[in-house]
């Protein structure tokens, strides 16, 4: 039986996630900054509209997780390669893990819980489209 090896798992993950990230990132770029007015059309309403759609929620959450873990693993490899002082290495790897965890939790929360028009907020704090309808 072959044992599960973390370095091998990391290597496979980088290739598989890289493959999916190419498709996800280009879809993201085309939809956000090229179609329908391009980058100038992006505003709060555009983002809120997208995140109201479960399809885009799952699309964005997949992109977020894959990109963050892919990037973090790449940074981990750089640290493993070039930082020899063991305490500095532990500090950097720990910082990397914490920052990635925070970003993943915050990003996931935003994607799934964003409410552009909270009912108990003061009217002057809300974007114009909340009162338009």
């Amino acid at each position: 039986m072959r044992r599960l090896k973390l370095e091998r798992l990391g290597w496979i993950f980088m290739r598989v996630s890289g493959f999916f990230l190419i498709a996800l990132i280009f879809t993201h770029l085309i939809v956000n900054v090229m179609q329908d007015g391009g980058v100038h059309a992006i505003d709060f309403a555009f983002v809120a509209g997208k995140l109201a759609n479960p399809l885009w929620q799952w699309f964005d959450v997949t992109l977020l997780w894959l990109a963050l873990i892919h990037g973090t693993n790449g940074m981990r490899v750089v640290i493993e390669d070039y930082v020899y002082r063991i305490n500095l290495k532990r500090f950097l790897l720990g910082g990397l893990a914490v920052s990635t965890a925070v970003l993943i939790v915050l990003g996931t929360l935003v994607i799934f819980t964003l409410d552009p028009c909270p009912t108990d907020a003061a009217a002057n704090l809300l974007p114009s489209f909340c009162t338009a309808g």
Binding site: R3, K5, E7, R8, G10, W11, D81
Partner: peptide, 12 residues
């Protein structure tokens, strides 16, 4: 392969 599957093995 098990030896080279280690942390300092082929994956570097």
């Amino acid at each position: 392969l098990d030896i080279l599957n280690s942390k300092e093995g082929v994956w570097r």
